[in-house]
Amino acid sequence: EIHIRTNGEEQARKVYKMLAKRNYDVKIEQHNGQWVVTAS
């Protein structure tokens, strides 16, 4: 499982799309105001 911390919604969405293209199961979560993308 991969966790990627991003500094904002826009970046989180870019990372989300990139990983989704590679057939990862991707989730975006917010932790303490930080956007974290989780891929498995």
Rank of each mutant, 00 (worst) to 15 (best):
E1N: 09
E1W: 15
E1L: 14
E1D: 09
E1I: 15
I2R: 04
I2Y: 08
I2Q: 03
I2M: 06
I2T: 04
H3I: 15
H3D: 04
H3K: 14
H3M: 13
I4H: 03
I4G: 01
I4S: 01
I4K: 01
R5T: 12
R5I: 15
R5N: 06
T6A: 09
T6S: 05
T6E: 02
T6K: 04
T6M: 10
N7D: 11
N7T: 10
N7M: 07
G8F: 14
G8T: 15
G8H: 14
G8E: 13
G8M: 10
E9A: 06
E9M: 09
E9G: 04
E9T: 04
E9S: 05
E9P: 11
E10A: 13
E10R: 13
Q11N: 05
Q11T: 08
Q11V: 08
Q11E: 14
Q11K: 06
Q11L: 10
Q11A: 09
A12I: 02
A12V: 02
R13C: 14
R13N: 07
R13H: 07
R13L: 12
R13A: 05
R13I: 09
R13V: 07
R13T: 05
R13F: 07
R13P: 00
R13Q: 09
R13Y: 11
K14Q: 10
K14W: 14
K14H: 09
K14R: 12
K14F: 09
K14M: 10
V15D: 01
V15A: 05
V15I: 15
V15H: 03
V15W: 14
V15G: 01
Y16D: 02
Y16R: 05
Y16G: 12
Y16L: 07
Y16P: 00
Y16N: 02
K17E: 15
K17A: 14
K17M: 12
K17V: 11
K17S: 10
K17N: 14
M18C: 15
M18D: 09
M18Q: 08
M18R: 06
M18Y: 15
M18A: 12
L19H: 01
L19T: 01
L19V: 02
L19W: 04
L19E: 01
A20G: 04
A20P: 01
A20M: 13
A20T: 10
A20H: 07
K21T: 08
K21R: 09
K21G: 11
K21P: 02
R22N: 09
R22L: 15
R22P: 03
R22V: 06
N23D: 07
N23M: 09
Y24K: 05
Y24T: 04
Y24P: 04
Y24D: 03
D25W: 10
V26I: 04
V26N: 00
V26G: 02
V26A: 05
V26W: 02
K27M: 06
K27V: 06
I28N: 00
I28L: 07
I28C: 04
I28S: 01
E29F: 15
E29R: 07
E29S: 11
E29I: 11
E29H: 11
Q30I: 13
Q30F: 14
Q30P: 03
Q30L: 11
H31G: 04
H31I: 14
H31S: 09
H31C: 14
H31K: 12
N32P: 02
N32W: 05
N32S: 06
N32A: 08
G33D: 07
G33Q: 05
G33N: 05
G33F: 04
Q34M: 13
Q34I: 14
Q34K: 08
W35D: 00
W35A: 01
W35M: 01
V36G: 03
V36Y: 12
V36P: 00
V36T: 07
V36I: 13
V37S: 00
V37M: 01
V37G: 00
V37W: 01
V37L: 04
V37Y: 00
V37P: 00
T38D: 02
T38S: 07
T38W: 08
T38G: 02
T38E: 03
A39K: 03
A39I: 15
A39V: 14
A39Q: 03
A39F: 13
S40Y: 11
S40M: 10
S40W: 13
S40L: 09
